[in-house]
């Protein structure tokens, strides 16, 4: 889709806004410069430049098919950008929760063993959560010994989330972690991520369509629609998104904003 010049202006304003508020302890963990990805002449990402500060929950939102997952996969190094580059200022590797987990459900392992695989890495960075904490925080204790073959969609999501959070990393990329979660779990996950970011110094980059979660727990938000439309506080970017002129997206907002 085409974007007007004024959209980009918004982007510039919000980015400046973030920079001026940078706290003294916060550092940049990641910066992208003019990231573009073209697949068979379709422009998936178009000159996306942004940076992420440490100790924050950064949201990434935008219409379906706007390139969010592609962006995360490029950040993970799974795909090479057509143009532009990604700079990390923290030790690798980065932990990643994919939107759909690879087909692992044939595995004859219990929930406990599956989550434990997250601790297999050799990195010296401390994990966001220990095994014990992950099970307690995500409410998995009662299914710890159960086989992963018999989990519901929501439980499977939580188990994958737990495996990601016990990984050793400074930056966690989470693709729609709030999907399939009930309200109570959403609340627990939101406050958990906040605590891990603000107190334990972890950084999260979270794809979400969940305005409730974004409003309550996220520190900043990036609006992406192939181009970076805006980056700033959840409220300001949210407002921009609400008032977006495109009728298709107006309707989309209407459905998701109760």
């Amino acid at each position: 889709m085409r974007l007007s010049y004024s959209d980009l202006q918004f982007g510039a304003t919000f980015q400046r806004d973030v920079k001026s508020k940078r706290g003294c302890k916060k550092v940049t963990v990641l910066r992208t410069q003019n990231l573009s990805f073209i697949d068979n002449r379709d422009v998936i990402l178009d000159a996306v430049s942004f940076s992420l500060e440490s100790r924050k929950i950064h949201g990434l939102t935008g219409p379906n098919g706007s390139g969010k997952t592609t962006l995360l996969e490029i950040l993970m190094g799974y795909m090479k950008p057509t143009q532009g580059r990604v700079e990390y200022f923290i030790p690798q590797p980065v932990a990643y929760l994919p939107q759909q987990s690879a087909q692992q459900r044939l595995l004859p392992v219990s929930v406990q063993e599956f989550v434990e695989m997250g601790t297999w890495g050799k990195s010296s960075t401390p994990p966001a959560l220990s095994m014990k904490e992950a099970f307690r925080e995500l409410g998995l204790d009662h299914i710890a010994r159960q086989s992963i073959l018999r989990l519901s969609g929501g439980e499977w999501k939580k188990v994958n989330l737990a495996r990601t959070l016990v990984q050793s990393a400074d930056l966690y990329l989470l693709d729609e972690p709030f999907n399939h979660l009930d309200l109570d779990t959403e609340k627990r996950l939101g406050t958990l991520l906040q605590r891990l970011a603000h107190e334990n110094g972890k950084t999260f980059f979270v794809v979400s369509h969940d305005w409730h979660a974004m409003n309550h727990y996220f520190d900043s938000l990036i609006l992406l629609n192939h181009k970076l439309i805006a980056q700033g506080s959840v409220q300001s970017v949210g407002e921009l998104y609400m008032n977006w002129k495109d009728p298709a997206h107006h309707q989309w907002m209407h459905q998701h904003c109760h």
């Binding site: 799974y78 994919p98 690879a102 990984q167």
Partner: peptide
Amino acid sequence: WASVIDARFARSLGF
């Protein structure tokens, strides 16, 4: 096992 089960996951562990 990590790379057999999920190559991307294995890479995010540093393998």
